[in-house]
Design a protein around this nucleic acid. Structure first.
Lengths: 143, 143
DNA sequence: TACTAGTTGAAAATGATGTTCAGTTAGAGG
DNA sequence: CCTCTAACTGAACATCATTTTCAACTAGTA
């Protein structure tokens, strides 16, 4: 769960104005657990700010991804959703049934990265890792 | 580099006909190192089969991804390209400058996966890993 | 309060990909 | 070799998510 006030501060620090529309999007982002996509965020945000348009949602999600509050998810059925991202944590574990996304930390890939780098001659700058699975609730529902 | 004959056999085994168009696409796929996207494949394939259309390229790439000969790449600038995939190997290392994609094997994530699974209660089914970096040629060009 | 740079939504543009459909063809079976 | 038909094809069109445009609006500073 993301801290709403912190988000507002980050936006201000970035020179962004806090409009009614942006507040609505921030609230949705801060209170949603799991995947977010523009259409759904827009729909939810309209509860608080009925006149918000999809364009603005896209723009706001972009900013949030920029400041690191959201991270884009890449799933088998598409690459257009986001998940809340806490600072410092780097990866997501996503439930393939319900789409719930949780973060995890402590990926230690240094040995792997070093070995691949020396074998290929590449200079490895970044890595991108996602785990896919089934969350406890969906496991229970299957029994 | 992918084996052209093996691809043709795989297609046949799947009940696909080997048309001139498909042969052209296969040839491009088998002789390209690195990223492939539909538009580029189409352009290249026209050297061998000028009347091929984009539609057919999409359909053929789909089939190749299906049989595991291609794997979709997810990059910062988009998720619509593929890379040749040898059987058994699971991951790609991509050059952020030139887009060259090489495969690597030997990712041992069992410790990580186990730890995350026990911490979150998820049943982890699959993982997705990509490394991003700079290939030897692009490193040299930078000096 | 007045100002202005940042912001907004509707509409239109874009761009990748999917679908349709009437015509074509690979290749199995005679 | 033929014949036949399911598989395949490309052009045109449909979709769908996302971006751009632009004139009107507004948060927040002075």
């Amino acid at each position: 769960m993301i801290n709403l006030e912190r988000l507002e501060q980050q936006l201000k620090a970035r020179g962004c104005k806090l409009t009614r529309q942006r507040r609505a999007v921030l609230r949705v982002v801060a209170t949603t657990e799991g995947r977010l996509d523009a259409a759904r965020v827009c729909e939810d945000a309209r509860a608080e700010c009925p006149e918000i348009g999809l364009t603005t949602v896209y723009r706001t999600l972009d900013i949030l991804a920029d400041i690191g509050a959201l991270r884009r998810l890449h799933l088998p059925d598409g690459c257009s959703s986001y998940a809340p991202a806490s600072p410092g944590h780097r990866h997501h574990l996503i439930c393939v049934e319900c789409g719930r996304a949780v973060e995890f930390e402590g990926c230690d890939l240094t040995a792997l990265v070093d070995s691949v780098a020396s074998r290929t001659g590449f200079e490895v700058e970044d890595h991108w890792l996602q785990l896919l699975g089934r969350c406890p609730a969906c496991q229970a529902r299957r029994l």
